[in-house]
Design a protein around this nucleic acid. Sequence first.
DNA 1: TGAAAGTCCGAGTCCATTACTCGGAATAAA
DNA 2: TTTATTCCGAGTAATGGACTCGGACTTTCA
Lengths: 155, 155
Amino acid sequence: MKLSTKGRYAVMAMVDLACHYRGAPISLADIAQRQEISLSYLEQLFARLRRGGLVRSVRGPGGGYLPARPLDDTRISDIILAVDEPIRATRCPLGTGTGCKSDKSRCLTHDLWDELGNQIHLYLSSVSLADVCQRRVLGTARLAPAERPLRVAAQ
Amino acid sequence: MKLSTKGRYAVMAMVDLACHYRGAPISLADIAQRQEISLSYLEQLFARLRRGGLVRSVRGPGGGYLPARPLDDTRISDIILAVDEPIRATRCPLGTGTGCKSDKSRCLTHDLWDELGNQIHLYLSSVSLADVCQRRVLGTARLAPAERPLRVAAQ
DNA sequence: TGAAAGTCCGAGTCCATTACTCGGAATAAA
DNA sequence: TTTATTCCGAGTAATGGACTCGGACTTTCA
């Protein structure tokens, strides 16, 4: 789970789309203007989102993009995963369950990064587009841990 | 809280230092060899760690670095904060409590990133160097949330 | 039927950061 | 006084992120 501004742009755009969606497709030009993101860059992002099955597209005048799923069924983690490359294999391959490059002894910090990745994924998959549109975000941190609505993705 | 490979290198080095520390200073050359990080790069990282008060240095032959504090008192978040630049002010200034650039309506995703930053900091400040050295890392995720030892930094 | 509004696609550019290298100075132990 | 180390600043190569550009394709509507 990589965290770049690219992923943030994608989330901003998806949130904009979700919040303004009233049944008709929404054009990238609109989103570009509202969110102050360049149109061409948005095109790239939405190409990935479409391939990831998060949005549907309609071509021609009056066309644009629509959410492909119910808003409370699209999680923030889905968006970021669709847009960002899987982490690049540096010295210590984070995402992969495999051991580290130095075979001799297992990389001491490996478990740490693994677990951090889990935590991030856990949080981001507990928040849906609907949550963000309805400003139901900040509350989660304030709840007692037990009542926190963590819908963890199986996996 | 930025997450770069730079911060990961710093954590790897600090963990190496902590785990091998037996009272005598440890030279960067040793760490460089064990962790396969270039010596000069380590020098840069440790310059920051020293300025951040995380390590002490001893010059001359037999010299090197020592942890400045007890191992269970140095949290992973301290290391990353010491090494990484504060997040650069892009369109939506994450760390700052201020509003977003577009004054008209508050950036919809702002709270989300804020909260994610909290979550990351929360986790990384709940893990100490001692935890990593003694492989007490993976356990935390398995605990029920209530028993999770979250020592949140005041702030 | 054709112009216009939109998506689609690939290539290329610019820039900041990362991950280094290099050279040398300061310091302290042997 | 040699040598092992930290310290410091400057420079550099490579990488990836954040775009731009040009043009194709698709569909609506006048």
